[in-house]
């Protein structure tokens, strides 16, 4: 079999039960946060050179799970991140967020999905300069038409979660790298997403601060029940996740994933397994 089917059992996600308790929990319960089947992504380079960045990836992230995707540069990590973040659409295969197939969604609906379901944490933090920590955190709420007072209240709450509410009026330039990443995490959390997608979250931080940021992310995953996918090239960071999915040459490495102590064997009954002949990826 040429593709990898990896599923992270909900039981491994410590926050799954807690997640069911809050407002969005009912939606999270049952449907996987992300469900990718035989996903490929090809780019056209120049006139007729096709780059197969992803060559058939299947991946299921249940609510509250913590998964790391680890691989060197050029492995297809960034392409996978774009897809898992609903920033891009697959060339083939199906990609579902809480049961909604991106193929059925318009660009505007995809934007709304990013707004409500996904929280991004970037390596470069991506905070708006000359904008207070609180207004940075409140930014996603702007795009759902929330009033100023509500935005400020929820942004302050989110900053509380990352222990930075006392720095809410500071601009990014006045914050340390670790603090900036905490603000970015608060921004990712403010819309109460189902999925926290962290792209090299410690890449621009010293190791001590990096460890603190990973602890914070793990804590939020455990406490708030938000599924956490960390994409990294750093094996140490990847090792923090109960499930590690190595990626190489555009495919998830099943052997190494299976060898991971915490990852269970792929479940025998998944939709992808039901039709094993389907979707042999282009090579």
């Amino acid at each position: 079999m040429s593709t990898d089917e990896l599923s992270v059992p909900a039981a491994l996600a410590p926050g799954a039960e807690a997640a069911a308790g809050d407002g969005a929990g009912a939606e999270r319960n049952g449907e996987p946060v992300v469900d990718a089947r035989e996903v490929t992504r090809h780019y056209l380079l120049g006139r007729d050179t096709v780059v197969e960045a992803l060559r058939g990836v299947s991946l299921t992230v249940p609510p509250g799970a913590f998964v790391s995707i680890v691989g060197p540069s050029g492995s297809g990590k960034s392409t996978l991140l774009n897809l898992l973040g609903a920033l891009d659409r697959p060339t083939s295969g199906s990609l579902r967020f809480s049961g909604r197939d991106v193929a059925d969604l318009s660009d505007a609906e995809l934007a709304a999905l990013r707004n409500t379901d996904i929280g991004f944490v970037f390596q470069q933090f991506h905070l708006l300069a000359r904008t207070s920590a609180r207004d940075n955190v409140a930014l996603p709420l702007v795009y759902r038409g929330a009033g100023r007072r509500e935005r400020q209240r929820r942004a302050t709450e989110a900053l509380d979660l990352v222990g930075l509410s006392h720095r809410r009026d500071h601009s990014p330039a006045e914050l340390s790298g670790g603090e900036q990443q905490r603000v970015a995490i608060a921004r990712a959390l403010v819309s109460e997403p189902h999925l926290l997608l962290a792209d090299e979250p410690t890449g621009n931080l010293d190791s001590q601060t990096g460890t603190e940021i990973m602890e914070l992310l793990q804590d939020l995953n455990a406490r708030a029940g938000v599924a956490l996918v960390v994409i990294t090239h750093d094996p140490e960071v990847a090792a923090l996740a109960p499930v590690q999915l190595p990626i190489r040459d555009g495919v998830l490495d099943q052997d190494r994933a299976s060898a991971s102590a915490l990852a269970p064997a792929p479940p025998a009954s998944g939709p992808a397994d039901a039709e094993p002949s389907e979707g042999s990826p282009p090579r």
Binding site: A108, R144, R187
Partner: peptide
């Protein structure tokens, strides 16, 4: 450009 990318990632539509 990066700010626009960020805003879109956070849910801004083309229209926004």
């Amino acid at each position: 450009t990066r700010e626009i990318g960020l805003r879109k990632a956070l849910g801004a539509r083309t229209r926004d």
